[in-house]
Each structure stands twice: as C-alpha cells, then as structure tokens.
Design a protein around this nucleic acid. Structure first.
Lengths: 200, 200, 200, 200
DNA sequence: GACTAACCGAGACGGTACGTCGTGTCTTAGT
DNA sequence: ACTAAGACACGACGTACCGTCTCGGTTAGTC
C-alpha cells in the first residue's frame, strides 16, 4: 500500500545468496555458536548491515539457508494409493534421517535457538516443524482410512510420537539411521503382514 | 575415597545453596538467557569467582539447581507387582508433566544449552536424561514380562518414542497435560481391557 | 598521507576530548592508581570500547591528556639573542616548576607507568621527555657559543643534571619552586656577573 | 606495653630468607610487574599469609631483598683525608653504576611503586634514598671545607643534581657507565688540576 | 609431660579491574 | 534506495590479583 520504491540503488540479489552460502559453510565448519554475524558477513564479502537488512537474527538466516537446501528432500510422499502407507512412512523416515547426517548439527542449533527467542520459534515452527508434522499426520490419517492402522489411534498423537523419537535422538546425539526408521515404522504399524504391501 | 581437603579454608556450603536458589529464582523470573552469571552471584550475595569455583558454566549450575528440586518427584515407580504397568506409566507421565508446568521453561533452556556445549550435554544426559529413560525402559521391560505388552516391542525404542513425544511437545510449546499422558499410555498399551488392572 | 578512512562512520571527535578531560579530572581527584579505565569511560559518557579504540592503555590516554594541556607552557625559549641564556633557563625552570604544582602528581604516575610498560616508556620519552631535554641542550649549546658557559661543559650532560634534579625532587616529593629554579641556574652558570645580561 | 609473647611457635626464620630470595629471583627473571605475590610465596614454598605476616606489600618485600644485597656496596667512602674528594665521588659513582647493571630493573620498579603508595615511598626514601643522598652531601661538604669546591656551591643542591642525573638516566634507560661517572665528577668539580689529588 | 599459643600449609572467599567479544544501531561516502 | 565500511553504546564473559578469613597441623617454650 505504500508507494512503491522509486529510484535508489536496487537490492543486490547476490548478497543474499552469498550470505546464505557463507552461513551454511561456516556453521558446518565451526559450529553455530562459534560463528558470529560479523564472521558470516565478512565471509560473504558483504557489510554487516546488509545482513540485517534481510534477516533479524543469525537463526533466521541459517534457517533460510538450510530450508532452501532441504526443500529438495523430504517432500511429501505421494499418497496416491499405489503403495502401502507403512512403506511410505519408512521411506520418508529413511530419507529424513539420511539428510540429518549432513544437517543434524545445524538443526540442533536451530532448535536450541528457538528455545531462546520466541519470534524465531514461531518462524521455525511454521516453516520447518509444522509441514513435516502435517505430512506424517496426513499419511497416518490415510493409513487409518485404508485400514492399515487401527481406527482408535490418533494421527496427531502418533505423529508427535514419531517426530518426538527423531528429535529426542537428534538432540541427545543418539543413533539415527535406516534401522531406526524401520524399527519406528514397525512399532507404529505392527509387524508386517505376510501379504505386505496393501495399497495405501 | 575422594581426595582429602588437606587443609585450607573449608568450602562454604551456604554459598552453593544460595547460588542454586538464586539461579532458579532469577531464571524463572527473567528467563535463562536474560540472566547473567554476575546477576546470579549478586543475587546470592556471593563473589563471582565463588560461582566459578563450583560450576564451569551457567548451565551446570542451573542443572544442579533443578536437579535437586526434581529429585523428589518423578521417582522410579515401584515395580512391585501390585499395580498394572500401564497405570504406573500413566501416573509417571502425569507426574512429570505436572512438574513441567513449573520447570518447563528451565528445562527447555537446558536442552538448548546442551546443544551448544558438548561437555554440558554429557553432564545433562547422564544426570537427567538417562535416568528417566532407564525408568521407562525398565517399566516397559516388566510390562513385556508380565504380558501387558507384546513381546515384539522393543523397550528402548518405545521409551524413546514416549520421551520423544514429551520433548517434542515441550520444545514446541505444545500442550502437556494429563490428557496427553493418558493418550500416550493408551497408544502404547492399546485400549484398556475390561479386566483392567492385572498385576505388573 | 595517512590512509584514507574510505567510508565508515566517522570517529566522534568529541568522545576523544571528553575522555581526555574525564581522565585528567578523575586522576587529579582520586589519583592515577585509583581510577579505573571503566570509571574514565563512564565519566566521559562513552563506551569502554571507544576508549580502547583510541588508546592502548590508561597511561597513553593520560599522557595525551596532560600533553595537550602542556603544549601551551614550557615552550622553547626564543634563542634570539636578545636575552641572556641564564635568564632564559631560569625562566624556563620557573615556568616548568610552576606547572608541576598542578600536574606533578599526574606526571609522577606516568613516570611510574613507564617503568612497567616498555611500549609506553618509548611513547612517553618521545612525546614528553626528549623534547624538553632538547630544549635545554640547545639552550646550553647556545650559551657555550656565546661564552656564557665554559666550552668544556657538555650540554648533554649538564642537561641531564638539570632534568635529573627536577625528576629526583619530583619523585621524592621534594620542594620544587622558583628558589630551586634560581639555585639550579646559579649552580650551572655560576654566580651572576656584575655585567649580567649579555646577549644569548 | 603488651605482655611479651609467652610460648607459641617461634617465627620460622628460613621462611623470610626464602621469600626474599624468591622475590629477587622472580623479579629479575620476569620483571616486577609480572610477578604476583602468590607466585613469590609459591616459589619460596611458603604460604601467602606467611608473606603478609612479614611485609605489607610486594614492594616492601622486594625493597628488603635488594637492600640486603646492596648493603655490601656503595658504602660511605672514608672521608679520612687521605684521598681527594673528587676521586672519592668518582669511585662512588662508578661503584653505584656498576651495581645498577644488576639491580637497575628492580630499582626502577621500586621507584615506580613508591609513586603509587605513600607509605612505601616513606619507607623507600628512608632506607634507600636518604642515606645515599647524605653520603654525597657529606662528601661535598667536606670538599668545600678542603677547598676542592667553591664555597658558594650548595652541597644539598649539587647532591640532588648528581643523584638526579643518575635517576633520570636510570628511569629513561639511558647509559650509566664509568664514563658517565667520570663526566659527572668532572662537571661538578671542574677539570682536574695538574696537581690533582689534594687531600680531601 | 601436658599445656598453650603463635606460627605455618593450604585454600576458599568478597572484591575489583582487566581486555575481549558479540550485538544491534548509527553515520558517513559512494553507487 | 541500497551498499561498504566502520564507529558507537551496551553488556556479558572468563581471568587475574589482592587482602582477608578459616581451617587443621606443627612446633617450641612454659607450667
């Protein structure tokens, strides 16, 4: 509603990308807590104020940086009825866990940052947590509809159990590999039936 | 067995207690991140160095402070066979959740601190996380032995699902009340049998 | 010739002046050793780091502060041949001594600081000691050329005798007044001749 | 007036000597300012309180330590009339300067300490400065009586000129060797007469 | 031979100052 | 309007000394 910016130097689009790249690189190298905002700006070859023009906090910047990278993977599994929900869940978890091998440290730091900054927590939850929770909730809802899961299970509750196991192990530096994904799936859905692979 | 003090002015035990009390009070009032080490020492009426003599970090101090308070509650449920394991679990969770109403904020901060400091993480895990995980694992093991739980459930995995749900909701500021405790218990053990209350 | 600032917020010149003024005021009030860097910054209404941006040590700051004040007095006497060198020396000493009534305490502290910090010693010597020594050496050299002083006196040695007397008395809190200035002058030049006041 | 101490453990004389030795050793090695009281006590294998039982400040301890060492040299020249005063002065200065090669650094630190602590200044002046000043004053007085020096010279003033030259050069890290001693003597007494060596 | 009181080691304690670091805001000049 | 550069106010950090204190243990000399 404000008058569109007339004249003035245009925003340097490269600066934002350079900042995100620099942030990810440094945070992975040194760890989130040992990277200062000034260091990121310097690494990106950019003034500090330029960073503040785009993000409010280091956490917001890093969130954007990993978010971009993460868009590719962990996409919602296609609930198109061709495959069993238990298989989709297992695949989803394996996929997520495999990417945590790379981004686990960064995510741990972001979860920590969210505990210290309510504004960032809301941002992080909306951008990162909720979508993944929705994916699993939807998948479980579908499983109930298809009869793969007992109707008296609550999709929301089971979803938080599943994500919880993932968070708990991530934050306590526990093992998170394919075998865990399979075990979680099995615990939720029960032992696979001999006629495994009913449609989802 | 500990190294003998071997002379020297004895440690002032009051100072340690005053520091823990001051830490808890201030952290609850202002929030963990807004309390400086200096402020805690001042509130306790103690020199800053005295604090450093006992704890390496603010997190270690606060951990000790809540740990002490927490010793009373969340004690291991008595696996004496008189009550059903599902009831014991439910009671345990209700108990834990009710205390989180008081200490939830502090614990969130400590979990965050653990993500930024490996040494503290180890301390926190050993003192706080592991014991509670063990309690639940033991309880579940017992439940399997008594036939309350299917033998093909893994106590360790289920334990991390249960704790995970708790962590996940705590860290995302979700609801954590008695109804959640009951729902979790029900999801793990299944709907209560009519002849509820078999021995555990 | 200096490196161009090349952008960036310009240095706040008032801050430097305020710091020097505050330093002098506090050091005179409380004594050098009882004034902390933090107190000076606070008195100047300036951040501590701003002080560190300009000076490395408290001594360097205080040196600059007194140096500025001292520029006015103790200027090199005009060796223009109109007045006798002995009169010029006497005047110079009277002038210096009178200002020591104000700055003596500060100077004693700076001399002390120079004994504990080689870098500051070099700075102090170059800015403060050497110029005054040169003044006297030049004056004495002129006196020899004009025959007021025996040619076998060494200007450098006599200069250090003169300055030495001043330091020795300053550091031992001895008397330093006009009568001492006259006595020193008389001892160096001998009793005034009846035809006093040959041109210098 | 208080009752003399009856009974009780006697003072450990070795501790004092060990402290003085440790102080000198450390101060010479690291420099006065970089040696803490705790370091001296530790080096001496003695408790910190034991040091405080004997001396009020580090400066007092170090003063005692060098004073002891210095008693041997720079003794008052024998004004027995057998040798010329100018020779005695020259010898005295050569002697003093040669010992400054060893203790110069320590003395510089003590002079600095005296500027920061009035109580120590009085102690230092009485024990160290005044005796040496008296020696020279007496010698000059004798020189006047013997006619080696003009009667209108003031022994006190000349003494402060001589000591001043020494202090000034010491504190500014100037040269202090035998040639300076000879030059000072020559400047004070004038060129040696052909019939040098009248009795003093 | 027991008593006694000053001494000693060790080290915790209340204070104070230090220099460094990071943050978010600001103020220039330049694009 | 945006950028690069960097000064600034603010505040926390961990360290280093200082001088005092409080212990338990060790002495001689005195009763």
């Amino acid at each position: 509603m404000t008058s569109p910016p007339q004249g003035g130097r245009p925003v340097n689009a490269q600066a934002g990308a350079a900042l995100k790249a620099a942030a990810l690189r440094l945070v992975r190298e040194r760890g989130y807590g040992k990277v200062s905002i000034a260091a990121i700006a310097e690494e990106a070859g950019v003034a500090r104020q330029t960073l503040y023009n785009r993000w409010n906090t280091k956490a917001d910047l890093v969130l954007d940086a990993v978010f971009e990278e993460t868009q590719s993977y962990a996409a919602a599994p296609p609930l198109d009825g061709e495959r069993a929900c238990r298989d989709l869940l297992e695949e989803f978890l394996i996929n997520v866990f495999s990417h945590l091998a790379v981004n686990g440290g960064v995510l741990r730091a972001l979860i920590a940052a969210a505990q210290q900054d309510a504004a960032f927590q809301a941002n992080f939850y909306a951008k990162f947590v909720l979508p993944r929770e929705k994916m699993v909730t939807n998948l479980l809802q579908r499983a109930i509809e298809r009869g793969e899961l007992s109707a008296d299970r609550s999709p929301e509750l089971v979803s938080s159990l599943i994500h919880g196991a993932f968070w708990y192990r991530l934050l306590n530096r526990g093992v998170l590999d394919a075998s865990v994904a399979k075990a979680v799936t099995r615990d939720v859905f029960g032992p696979p039936t001999s006629a495994a692979g009913g449609d989802c």
